[in-house]
């Protein structure tokens, strides 16, 4: 028997998921514009395989398939993983990552709402550990590439690993700015010298900095739609800026500026779209601040002192582990329980 309340706000899980997908569109558009259409092919591969794995596992679990397929959560996971790996990644890399995200991280933990770890980041982590080489071959921005990789070329490359005659992989790809910075610093070049290289732009990487700003715009859109709260993005970016700022002040020739760290790599995508995944994030207001700040600090530590060029995935996954503890320790005092209230 249904009891009160008898009215519901016009809201749903699928509405949330599709709004987040909508918020990703500007960044995808910028990426197509500056890096070519390869990302669309990868997104399609990821979306289809995510829905396929989702339906397959739901079938095994004897759960209704359509409600879960149509809620948009598998598509969102697929897109977030795709946007975290090279757009020209071979198809099997994408599919393998999606398998880890949907089957292992999501459904083996009980499906939507029950996963302890962020599924997209589990997929990413599995790929970077297992297949480090293709994970570092990113599409170069069109302005730097020697050849323009159009849709047909991209399909050939992604599915057959074949480029048009006479093209080398180097002609269309490059390492990421974070990767380049790391390797160049090891060669005892200073940050200001490295930043003179053509792959760097005004803020971080040429081209990729524009994509990052599009993530920022999408994130602000989600904030105005009240789909994400300010706590996690602000805490994560604030902590990242603070820690990187301290090192930068100590030695600006060896440590990149906070602005560079904020725009480079997965900082903005992570802050607004990945760390804010509600299922695997902390839930209390103070908990969200601790969770976000923890990710921000870990991102910097992994970038500077770890073995991987970017730290968003491992930062998020490590903080996912801490969520139950953070939530338990940060319970806010309810109405009538505050010491200074009465």
């Amino acid at each position: 028997m249904q009891s009160s309340p008898y009215v519901l706000a016009p809201n749903s899980v699928s509405r949330i998921m599709f709004t987040v997908l909508l918020a990703l569109l500007p960044a995808i558009a910028v990426q197509i514009w500056l890096f070519g259409p390869a990302i669309l092919i990868s997104l399609a591969i990821a979306t289809i395989s995510a829905l396929g794995f989702e339906a397959f596992v739901l079938n095994l679990r004897e759960r209704p398939i359509w409600p879960a397929i149509s809620d948009g959560s598998a598509i969102l996971t697929a897109w977030l993983l795709t946007l975290s790996i090279p757009s020209i990644a071979p198809w099997w890399l994408t599919v393998t990552g999606i398998f880890f995200a949907i089957v292992i991280a999501k459904h083996l933990y009980g499906g939507l709402g029950n996963n302890v770890f962020n599924p997209a980041m589990v997929g990413y982590a599995a790929l970077i550990v297992s297949f480090p080489v293709p994970m570092t071959q990113w599409a170069a921005p069109d302005s730097l590439a020697h050849h323009y990789l159009d849709g047909i070329d991209a399909i050939h490359y992604i599915f057959n690993h074949r480029l048009p005659d006479g093209w080398s992989l180097d002609a269309i790809s490059s390492a990421t700015p974070l990767d380049t910075l790391r390797t160049q610093l090891k060669l005892h070049h200073s940050v200001s010298m490295i930043r003179q290289m053509p792959m760097f732009g005004q803020l971080a990487g040429r081209g990729s900095e524009m994509v990052a700003l599009a993530y920022l715009a999408g994130g602000l859109f989600l904030f105005t739609k009240r789909i994400i709260s300010w706590h996690i993005p602000l805490a994560m970016l604030g902590a990242l800026a603070l820690v990187s700022g301290i090192f930068w002040l100590i030695d600006p020739q060896y440590y990149a500026s906070p602005l560079f760290e904020l725009v480079a790599g997965g900082s903005l995508l992570g802050a607004f779209f990945i760390a804010t995944d509600p299922v695997s994030a902390a839930t209390t207001p103070h908990g969200k601040l601790i969770y976000g700040a923890g990710i921000g600090i870990l991102v910097y530590l992994i970038r500077e002192f770890g073995a991987y060029p970017d730290g968003v995935a491992f930062g998020v996954l490590l903080m996912n582990i801490a969520v139950p503890l953070i939530d338990a320790w940060t319970q806010p005092a309810p109405y009538g329980h505050k010491k200074d209230a009465a």
Partner: peptide, 23 residues
């Protein structure tokens, strides 16, 4: 009549609107 209930996705919209400041 309300749509069928789905799993909690821990979005904490409920905590944001709770006038008793509960979780």
């Amino acid at each position: 009549s309300p749509p069928p209930a789905m799993e909690c996705i821990r979005c904490t919209r409920c905590a944001e609107v709770c006038p008793a400041e509960l979780q």
